[in-house]
C-alpha cells in the first residue's frame, strides 16, 4: 500500500478531525489523564523506531536506532502506567460515593 499525495492528506485531515472531536467534549476533570493518555498513544512511535533500527546498517545508525527504540519504549510504557494509575483512582472514588 502506498500512502502518498492526496491519500495522505485525506488521512491527515480526517484523523485531525477525530482528534479535535474527542477532546472537544471532555470535562476539565479529565484533562490531565487525557493528556497523559494521548501522550501514551503517540508511543506508537515505537513501531517506527523498531523499523528504523531493523533497517540500520552503519554503527551510527545502529546507535541512534537503538536510542530511538529505548526512548519510544519509555514513552509507550511510561505513558500507559501513569495514565492507568490516574484513571484507577477515578474509579475508586466513584465507588466510594
Amino acid at each position: 500500500m502506498m500512502i502518498d499525495g492526496f491519500i495522505a492528506l485525506y488521512i491527515f485531515m480526517l484523523a485531525a478531525f477525530v482528534g479535535h472531536e474527542i477532546i472537544g467534549r471532555v470535562p476539565v476533570i479529565l484533562h490531565t489523564p487525557l493528556m497523559s493518555g494521548s501522550n501514551f498513544v503517540h508511543g506508537i512511535v515505537l513501531v517506527g523506531a523498531m523499523v528504523a533500527l531493523g533497517r540500520a546498517s552503519t554503527t551510527l545508525e545502529l546507535v541512534i536506532g537503538f536510542v530511538g527504540v529505548v526512548l519510544a519504549a519509555g514513552n509507550a510504557v511510561g505513558g500507559y502506567v501513569v495514565t492507568e494509575r490516574m484513571l484507577e483512582m477515578f474509579k475508586s472514588s466513584k465507588g466510594s460515593k
Partner: peptide
C-alpha cells in the same frame, strides 16, 4: 515520520494526538 515510513498506524495515531493536543 509515519508518512516517511509509510506506516498508517503512526500517521493516524500521531495526527489524532496532534489535533487533540493542540485543542487541549
Amino acid at each position: 515520520e509515519g508518512f516517511v515510513l509509510q506506516n498508517a498506524a503512526m500517521i493516524i495515531a500521531g495526527t489524532v494526538v496532534g489535533a487533540a493536543g493542540t485543542l487541549l
